[in-house]
């Protein structure tokens, strides 16, 4: 595999011990599922011989075939921070997510990969109910944050989003000063009562985001006056200023150059000590570098979740393999 050499060696593996344990103990009742997955894999593997889009022999559309595939790998964990159970998401009539069941472990970095339009952003935005802002979006199934139902009508989205923060694809600092950008979250949540405490939070967040040294002399300057990479780190600082438990990142580096990307990747590795991170990325190298586990989505279906190293060296599912070797994309 081309990417195996890119996987960061011992560090990543060391972090993954927890994941491996989880796999051993949490296979649970998943055996049947696994078998189904294998059966379908055979159906697909025939199709794959003639190119991924040739399902002619089966007389069924690709979507229908994909729907019947069961998730392979280790979707369920013992130490789940967030869990999804049979999640379906619809935009009007169109189904964007099909029956996704998986866990996100505590303090892990999980990467979500898959071809464009497969629903990575959609599932991510379900995790802090950002999808509420889309009128015609409907979410079914169970989503839980530490066992609490996120979509419970009694659930308040304001504290939920304080606990599950989000960093967007395009850096989107507020048109305010750098200081005010970072201070905004703590202010609206009333986390601090005195200016000194706020100053501390701002400094700490900027330090954690690796931006402090670059901006400490111009905290009153505009947040939008920073470079793209700096803006994205400012957005990360803004997110961590409210000390969320989970950070969702939707292609955080897609607008950045390789150096800024490297800074952010380092940052993710550091943040993973305190936060649970779910990151959507189009760069498989990036997924391989920063994540502990990787989830592969295809046409709204979760195909495979496994340890990152396994996904990139010896994936369980042929679709995953086809994707990471560049046959789907």
């Amino acid at each position: 595999m081309a990417f195996s050499s890119n996987v960061r060696g011992n560090n990543v593996r060391g972090n993954n011990v927890r994941g491996n344990n989880a796999r051993d103990s949490s296979l649970r009742s998943n055996n049947t599922r696994g078998n189904n997955g294998l059966r379908n894999k055979n159906v697909l593997s025939q199709a794959l011989q003639g190119g991924i889009n040739d399902y002619g022999r089966d007389q069924r559309s690709e979507t229908e075939v994909i729907r019947e595939i069961d998730t392979v790998g280790v979707p369920l964990l013992d130490t789940a921070k967030m869990s999804m159970r049979g999640v379906d998401v619809f935009y009007g009539e169109k189904q964007a997510i099909v029956d996704v069941t998986m866990d996100i472990g505590k303090n892990e970095v999980i990467a979500m990969i898959g071809p464009s339009g497969c629903g990575k952003s959609t599932i991510l935005r379900c995790l802090n109910r950002m999808n509420d802002t889309i009128d015609h979006c409907r979410v079914e199934g169970g989503l839980f944050l530490e066992g609490q139902d996120i979509y419970d009508p009694k659930m308040d989205v304001v504290p939920l989003r304080a606990r599950v923060g989000m960093v967007f694809q395009k850096p989107n600092p507020f048109p305010k000063s750098i200081y005010d950008n970072v201070a905004y979250g703590p202010r609206i949540h009333g986390l601090v009562s005195r200016r000194i405490e706020l100053d501390e939070i701002v400094e700490l967040s900027l330090r954690k985001a690796g931006l402090w040294d670059e901006v400490k002399d111009r905290l009153d300057g505009p947040g939008t006056g920073l470079s793209g990479g700096q803006q994205q780190r400012l957005c990360i600082a803004r997110t961590i200023a409210v000390s969320p438990e989970v950070i969702l990142m939707d292609e955080p580096c897609s607008a950045l150059d390789p150096i800024a990307t490297a800074r952010i990747e380092e940052l993710i590795a550091e943040l993973s000590q305190n936060f649970t991170i779910a990151i959507v990325t189009h760069s498989m190298q990036q997924a391989a570098r920063v994540s502990h586990r990787t989830a592969y989505f295809h046409l709204g279906k979760l195909i495979e979740v496994n340890d990152t190293e396994k996904v990139f060296t010896n994936p369980d599912h042929q679709l995953t393999e086809a994707y990471i070797t560049g046959r789907i994309g």
Binding site: M130, V158, N172
Partner: peptide, 14 residues
């Protein structure tokens, strides 16, 4: 821009 709204909602503004 919607990105500004999302940014605000994303950190828990009502």
């Amino acid at each position: 821009p919607p990105s500004i709204r999302e940014a605000a909602l994303g950190i828990g503004a009502s």
